[in-house]
Design a binder for these strands. Sequence first.
DNA 1: GCCCAATCGGAACGAATCAGTCCGATTTGA
DNA 2: TCAAATCGGACTGATTCGTTCCGATTGGGC
Lengths: 156, 156
Amino acid sequence: MRLTSLADYAVVMMAAAARHDAGARLSATVLAEETGIPLPTAQKLTGRLAAAGLLETARGSGGGLCLTRTAAEISLADIIEAVEGPIQMTSCVDAERHDCALEQACQVRPHMGVVNGAVRGALAAVSLDQLSCAPAQAGAQKDGWTPAFAGEQVAS
Amino acid sequence: MRLTSLADYAVVMMAAAARHDAGARLSATVLAEETGIPLPTAQKLTGRLAAAGLLETARGSGGGLCLTRTAAEISLADIIEAVEGPIQMTSCVDAERHDCALEQACQVRPHMGVVNGAVRGALAAVSLDQLSCAPAQAGAQKDGWTPAFAGEQVAS
DNA sequence: GCCCAATCGGAACGAATCAGTCCGATTTGA
DNA sequence: TCAAATCGGACTGATTCGTTCCGATTGGGC
């Protein structure tokens, strides 16, 4: 029950991207500098996030990337699934695959779908703008730069 | 976002144990036979479950194991934590540890506690008796043996 | 029209964790 | 006292993860 580091990094990167204006020119390099994530790792993540449809990428010297949707429309589950693949607690959740030796006699399997849905629902309920906005209790600016907006994104 | 195989096996084993009477003599061998889990793996799991306080074990020729609580009082989160350790999506959830390089500038970290709680809550809401009772749609007996009870456990 | 710079994309390597197995320690019953 | 049965910890092989490197592609400048 732990996120992989890549998924963790992806959430941090997406939150950083969400703090910029929609039209701002972003790149894996910029996000890597802001978040402290190693550049090659950040590049790998942008690739996966783009493949999942969360980011739009443009190659070339004038290229870069931007969010395809607003921060409110992107959930934590989206990001995790983009990096780690589908959220499924056990392999038997997927009806196609049959690589569990216990499958025939397993009494627990029928219930796993419900469990899976509950966990996924908890993650889908958290949107990116909830993560990107700094909470009131913590100091808003720690490293010099200030968020472009004080409260929430326009679209909520 | 996937359970390890050991945690998966532990859930299956605990569900099998819950189907027996409270006073029934159980052992890792019996559970391994019923579930199809390899015996050495089942032994490893009983050890961890006992260390977590979910099982009570007795050594010796007349030994064995039994649940310390009723199936309704044991949650999925308890089992998973017994095998995998505490449920924490990211390492920064634990305030003691500081092994995340991004910690200083991380804007997401303050929100991770909430996310963690949501996921853990989803798992804690599922009790063992919910998993051990066979659903109506699936055939109750597939491999010959019939459950000792038709519906739910007495304690619900 | 050509060259250069900047970016994404895929492939390969090293490390860590996990799954499974084996053997020893302990306890009870005959 | 002996023997059987059980739990408990240590070890090995395999899989996956995390990181890094290098090539492919595109746009701007000369």
